[in-house]
């Protein structure tokens, strides 16, 4: 792979909605996106863990981004999607409300998150990219998945 393609890959973001916010994660980190799956509840687990799902024989932990980011609970019955992030210990699923396109983000369009953003949310955001008619929040996926942080 040439350096140019690496560069381009880093600028490609898989985007999705959680609550009223518009988030993005680098495409290279996303293993795949799957529809809503049956989840097995895990008692005693941290509340951000929605449950376990069966992804073709692999057991994957699903983390509810609403809860993780301190946003209001997803209203009952509202469908969700799984964004599967590949990690060293296998995939982890981030539950989001709705998936959107893969977007290119110019590095110079990214600014640090404004100080005024609520602290609870701000710690999970690596930067804000100014898109034409809206703002894309770049999710710190590692922090979002590390429940001890």
């Amino acid at each position: 792979m040439s350096t140019e393609t690496i560069h381009r890959d880093q600028n490609q973001f898989c985007t999705f909605h959680v609550d009223q916010f518009f988030f993005g994660v680098e495409v290279s980190k996303v293993q795949e996106v799957v529809r809503q799956q049956a989840l097995t509840r895990v008692p005693l687990a941290p509340r951000e863990v929605s449950g376990l799902m069966n992804l073709r024989g692999q057991i994957v932990t699903a983390i509810d981004l609403h809860r993780r980011l301190g946003l209001p609970e997803r209203s009952g019955g509202q469908p969700c999607m799984n964004v599967l992030i590949s990690t060293e210990d296998g995939a982890v699923s981030l539950l989001v409300d709705r998936i959107e396109d893969v977007l290119s983000v110019e590095p110079d369009s990214v600014e640090p998150a404004p100080e005024t953003l609520q602290v609870e949310l701000r710690r999970f955001i690596r930067g804000v990219s100014k898109q034409k008619d809206r703002l894309l929040l770049i999710l710190d996926d590692a922090k979002a998945m590390d429940l001890s942080a």
């Binding site: 049956a38 989840l39 097995t40 895990v42 005693l44 687990a45 941290p46 863990v49 449950g51 376990l52 799902m53 069966n54 024989g57 692999q58 057991i59 994957v60 932990t61 983390i63 210990d89 296998g90 982890v92 998945m145 429940l147």
Partner: peptide
């Protein structure tokens, strides 16, 4: 027997998870 992800390693009451005949996950 399949191992649990690192988020759930701390739960001493579970040894792992498995996939049942109907495709569901059971602890």
């Amino acid at each position: 027997v399949k191992p649990l992800g690192k988020h759930l390693k701390g739960l001493a009451v579970f040894a792992g998870a498995t996939i049942l005949g109907d495709g569901k996950v059971a602890l």
